[in-house]
Amino acid sequence: MRTPKWIVLFTFIILCGCWDRTEINDLAFVTGTSLDLLEDGTMSCSLQIAIPTTTETGNSTKDNERFFIISAEGKNGNEIHQKLQKKISRTLFLSHRSIIFIGERLAKHGIKDALDIFTHDPRNRLKTYIMIVKGEEGRSILQINYPLKQLTIEAVKEIGLSGEDLAVTLRDFFISSVSEGVHPVVGGIEPDIHSKGTKNQNFNLTGAGVFKDYKLLGFLNEKEALGMMWLTDKLKSGRITANLPKYNGEVGMRLIHANRKIIMQTMDDTVKFKVQLEGEGSLIENTTGLNINEPKDLKIVKSALEDATKKQVQNSLFKIQKKYKVDSIGFGREVHKNNPEKWAVLKKQWDENFPEIDISLDVKLVIKGTGMVNSFLELPEKENEK
């Protein structure tokens, strides 16, 4: 009996396998990238490449050989990528890259051209995180030998996703850059000066960088960045501290839930906003003489924490609105979303008028538990009475 031709063809295809696949041993896994601007105006790019746990000869890598770095310089991303590929025998594999670090000098100069290659090359994932290295080159973070992780990049990523610090992807950045009524903000990082020169180095997350037209305007510190995250409804958790001089101490609260609501009021030629911030959590510190188990004392603590929160968020808003004069929160986007006709009138002059827009804040906190937090020492009853 003759075998049908389609069976022969099907068998041939199966036996041939994947003729164009790339073996894992032929790939170099890029875990992180840094971009910097040199003094002559050219761009420098460094790649952190993971070293496999075993080499081709079967020997294990040493503790200080978890990764290595290659660098190249050029006028554009395509030219730099070609130079980088020639420096390594394996094919650069970019899909595992977690973070891109951008030096402060390049960020202030402008990063539109530097990021252009990430929008065209499908090997670059838009879920990759982006961070600005404050006061240093981006390469300085790639070189850190962090002791608690196989790769420093993973440590940065996990801390950034904790909910207390700003985590922004390339996709987030591009969307904010092209959207109406909002400008992007990017998380900041810097090497820890206390661990410089030591075997095991560290880093610090340092608030956030404020952008306009793809250029860094300046930074928000950690407290200002937390306030900005609350204003943009991105805050998942955080800590609030209030000073009570009258009661000779401080109280601290751990937020486990936070949300924000923006109420817009339309005027004849402008708009104004009221921002309602709500949060709940538990007390984690009390160095005052207040007895938290007493409702009247707990009310004093709650009021002090709400006042401290309001002041902290107002500081964030003041720096964004009055100093940098850029709508990083997205108030213009709220107008665009809720009243397109009004936005059509306001959008042309929004950046110029935003610093004078009336924005008020209202804060309400819910204390769910006080735990074991009372005064630092159980003071006599008379001493607790103020």
Rank of each mutant, 00 (worst) to 15 (best):
T31Q: 13
M229L: 09
V326A: 10
P340T: 04
N124F: 13
G160V: 03
F68S: 06
T3D: 02
F211P: 00
S95C: 03
K323R: 10
Q48I: 04
E73D: 08
K348Y: 06
T241M: 03
F68E: 09
R2M: 12
D192E: 11
N243L: 10
R123Q: 12
S282Y: 09
I300H: 05
T61H: 13
K386L: 15
L283A: 08
N204H: 13
N291V: 11
G289F: 13
N353S: 14
L9V: 11
V8Y: 07
K364F: 12
D26V: 08
L92W: 01
T287I: 05
N200F: 11
A114C: 04
F93H: 11
S179T: 00
K215P: 01
S140F: 02
V363R: 00
P122A: 07
F173G: 03
S95W: 05
N78S: 15
S162D: 13
S328M: 04
D165E: 15
F68R: 12
G227W: 06
L27S: 03
V178M: 13
H120R: 15
E306L: 14
D362I: 05
P380A: 14
K319G: 05
E278K: 13
D121V: 11
A107C: 11
F318A: 06
K134F: 06
H183Y: 10
T33Y: 01
A167E: 11
N76D: 15
K310G: 15
A258T: 03
D172M: 02
T241F: 07
D307P: 01
I88S: 06
S71V: 03
A304D: 04
S162N: 11
H183M: 04
F173D: 00
G238P: 04
V178R: 15
M1W: 02
V210F: 00
D113C: 03
E65D: 14
